[in-house]
Design a protein around this nucleic acid. Structure first.
Lengths: 178, 178
DNA sequence: TCGTATTTTCAGAAAATATTGAAAGTTATG
DNA sequence: CATAACTTTCAATATTTTCTGAAAATACGA
């Protein structure tokens, strides 16, 4: 990691940690952070030298980021190398993550819980079990639905509304927060 | 893992996987699953034998579950052993998780991003950097606020409202979605 | 207080995950 | 189509995380 900029290093560190704690490969999160604050698209070699990681590692995690829809491949004219550019809009990023986590983590849970109900049968002894699984399943389906809908919003209209609904700070000034 | 019940095993498996993919120790998630579908509180030994894990492992993860507010310690009269009982309400569980993840994972990110801004200074060269970090920071603060507010709702009123707002299925009955 | 039942801790072992780097594969260009 | 530039793969290795089990600590009842 270059020493160039302490703030940038702090950011790479911070973002990597956060990724880790949400079950995302730390290097993947760091590359994402690097690209997010990079003014130009970066090549695999740029990423390797900035983060001091191997080609294989850089390649694999860049591909993952592309798969997640957080990063685009790009090309510079007169250059054979591939460059990578991050989506910078926070809401767009949020949508991409919501979409992928729905697909990778919520949908499989729904399928798993449905299989539980299948296996549980209808006998008296499994009543409580079925009730609990059914409640989890319905909740999961609601979350699944909401993540899907949120992920397709072009603009972040929903969070400000929620903030108001859940008691956002009252405006003390005469004009609204508009 | 006892062979007693295929549905239960499926559930333990499924819940463990889900935990893993969200950065939660798989065993912790499995113990949680086990307690969720257990009619009586279970002792450490019960958990050990159901999941075939060591005392140390069981103890550590039970403590974590208690720390997360997902499991309560309980006692049976005339028995010196400690027993554990899961919160079963899905909404209550959701709130506990939201509360803890806010505290453990969102708040540190906010602090980290604020430190980035400190370190970045005010010079022209860091303009884009500051803009990006600032946007991430504001988004994080919004999420932080929302998780805090959601976590304190006794009842799940908010999700049904959201479902309606984001295009919940239209009523097929004669009256409109009013 | 003592002895016993129970819980907690923690160093070492095992398992899971992430990383490396070199070879194989691919693609663009003369 | 040969070559050089670049990308991808993957077996070996390193690192991190999780788990074990026995020892230490604690709580309880007589």
């Amino acid at each position: 990691m270059n020493t160039e900029n302490a703030a940038k290093n702090q950011f790479l560190q911070c973002w990597g940690e956060m990724g880790s704690s949400w079950g995302i490969n730390k290097t993947m999160a760091q590359i994402h952070a690097l690209l997010m604050v990079s003014d130009q698209p970066l090549s695999t070699d740029d990423v390797m030298s900035e983060l001091q990681i191997s080609r294989g590692n850089a390649n694999m995690n860049l591909r993952s980021l592309v798969d997640w829809g957080l990063v685009r491949r790009s090309h510079q004219k007169g250059d054979r190398k591939e460059y990578f550019q991050s989506e910078k809009g926070v809401w767009k990023m949020f949508c991409a993550i919501a979409r992928e986590r729905k697909r990778r983590e919520i949908e499989p849970v729904i399928a798993g819980l449905e299989e539980c109900l299948q296996l549980a049968g209808r006998d008296k002894g499994s009543e409580n079990f079925r009730k609990q699984i059914t409640e989890l399943l319905e909740f999961s389906k609601t979350i699944d639905f909401l993540m899907g809908q949120v992920a397709r919003q072009e603009e972040n209209k929903i969070l400000p509304i929620l903030v108001r609904m859940l008691g956002g700070k009252k405006s003390t000034k005469s004009k609204g927060t508009s």
